[in-house]
Design a protein around this nucleic acid. Structure first.
Lengths: 222, 222
DNA sequence: CGTTTCTTTGAATCCGGTCAAGGTCCGTGG
DNA sequence: CCACGGACCTTGACCGGATTCAAAGAAACG
């Protein structure tokens, strides 16, 4: 199901200015795998005996309703753990957005790694708490924000990762829509509107910069 | 801010058929406190050095936007931990729905309780994972479900707590609305509609029973 | 350079929100 | 015991923001 070490050609958006947060080393535990665009890292309802960490690239988690509606849980970047939510099985699927490299660790392996295992378990704990916090933030966004506020929140959040430089979105409009609980058309319209209002500027549909941080922040409304 | 051991008269809905899930004992750690309807157990942005566990009654967590919009995070019942999401400060407030009794435990106290502390820390860990799962379920509901499906999901979830008997809602329509990302009017209309369709039956606005479990489940659409 | 996929834009529709009344439930006090 | 008052819930009419449907435009890819 999940391809082991599949090498893809260099068509990947190499994200030249990617904001590489320094990734604490995970030591020698686990295996590195490479996934191509759209490939599944793990699947909804599958057993959850591994945990995963993004080394390079970006990942989305998503969940499908039986009639095809989809909710994107979150997007993950280098240094982030994924698959933490799991009880016995995964509630969401995880898919690579572009080419990405993932470190895969068997949960059971941590028990027998002493020192190193304990250190990683601590990282997992704090990762889980952060995940819970982000998810709660996401709740607020989905439950109580307008389309315009949703898109503004999302862009501001993305822009933060790039520290004011030009930001590059690793996902398309459909992924944004499914994250924000909107349709792709609405996302597109709001992006257009935010640009018309001079709050952001796009160069192509995946690169943008914030032109008016204060104005954008005002829309986000903590 | 939070009243210690306030005794309220017996106007509380004593919930005679309340589904008392057996609560594992927390031993002698921590203090029990009683809160009256609407009282704050902890407040958004407050320091988070305690954890809390519902002993009796029901609790909602909620978060306020600066313009008054409110999102209810979740509802908690006897045995549930609350306040787990916290980094240094609480992201949500927690308020008592009716009269309720809460066991309050200073986090730092767990470190020095040996055996007992470790046992509770494990309960907290599994509580946090369950919380994350519930929150993700909530995401799906807020992002991708119609008003009717939202209300149906909610009622089905509540009904499950009462194992098919007549269920008693500890919260009012406004709380349901803020949990579901709807207005109070829409919640009311959907309840009326579900009743008209013969899926549920209300006796008063807080007691109901499921009349057609399959039909209701069909609306929920996993 | 043609084809496919993704994005944007427009027009019409509809679901849920808003505004405004009326109803119900309860507790209080005459 | 009943009248009153307040809080909460329900219902109706209308409105508007987001979706839907459709088509044109732009990017990515072979």
């Amino acid at each position: 199901m999940t391809a082991v070490s599949q090498i893809l050609p260099s068509n990947a958006p190499t994200s030249p200015a990617a904001p590489t947060s320094p990734i604490d080393d995970l030591g020698t535990i686990g295996v590195r795998m490479t996934f191509g665009p759209g490939e599944e890292i793990y699947v909804q309802d599958e057993d959850a005996d591994m945990i995963y960490r993004v080394v390079r690239g970006a990942v989305r988690t998503s969940r499908l309703l039986s009639d095809g509606r989809r909710q994107v849980g979150d997007f993950y970047y280098p240094g982030d753990f994924i698959g933490l939510e799991a009880g016995p099985t995964h509630r969401f699927s995880a898919e690579a957005l572009g080419v990405c490299e993932i470190q895969v660790i068997r949960k059971a392996a941590l028990k027998v790694c002493g020192e190193e295992g304990v250190r990683i378990e601590r990282m997992i704990w704090s990762g889980t708490v952060r995940e819970l916090q982000r998810t709660q933030e996401h709740l607020l966004l989905l439950g109580r924000k307008s389309a315009c506020e949703k898109v503004a929140s999302f862009l501001l959040d993305m822009a933060r990762r790039f520290r004011g430089q030009v930001a590059e979105l690793p996902m398309g409009r459909q992924d944004m829509a499914d994250y924000l609980g909107l349709t792709i058309e609405t996302v597109s319209r709001m992006v257009t509107q935010l640009q018309a209002d001079g709050l952001v500027r796009f160069q192509g549909c995946r690169r943008f910069e914030v032109r008016n941080p204060a104005g954008l922040a005002h829309l986000v409304e903590a």
